[in-house]
Amino acid sequence: MAADFIPYMERTRLYYRAQGFTRDYVWATHDDTPFHTLKKPLNTCRVTLITTAVAHPEIPKPVRKAESIPFSEVPDSFLTDELSWDKETTHTDDRESYFPIESLTALIDDGVIGSLADRFHFIPTQYSHRATIDEDAPAIARACIEDDVDVALLVPI
């Protein structure tokens, strides 16, 4: 059976046209795919999470920037209302369904991965490619290097 993945780009184009927008959004794409192999066993690796869920909603959406936040300060619930997800079909009341810190901790206990890094990272869903590519992504990459991260799980809502 052919895959029937939702054509999100096409649906989003139509959705915003229906809202009276005349210029379609252009999604980011790259000529090359960055790629690294793992240099050590997975069960010795330090892992972090990168999320689009908002940890500090007091910062206005248009000026949110990448943040690196200690795992000890993970909020019980992130702000997700301002993000685009299927609010008719599901909910985000269960943090683990998009920020799986308990499941990761269990995998450490089971010896699958080594440890959690000191910090997780927030990447804002900015309209501007420039803000994401030139500022936010490099800031998170630098923080991951500082924290000796081996594997980053990027989990966009």
Binding site: A3, F5, I6, P7, Y8, M9, E10, W27, A28, T29, H30, D32, T33, P34, F35, H36, T80, S84, W85, D86, K87, T89, T90, H91, T92, D93, D94, E96, S97, Y98, P100, S103, L154, V155, P156, I157
Partner: peptide, 27 residues
């Protein structure tokens, strides 16, 4: 979001064919 992520080009992508909001699985 298979189309958006693969359009971007990323090194490793696990696609969960689920509604947007719960990328790891149902609540």
């Amino acid at each position: 979001a298979m189309d958006i992520v693969t359009h971007c080009k990323v090194p490793r992508y696990l696609h969960n064919d689920l509604p947007l909001g719960n990328p790891l699985g149902a609540p």
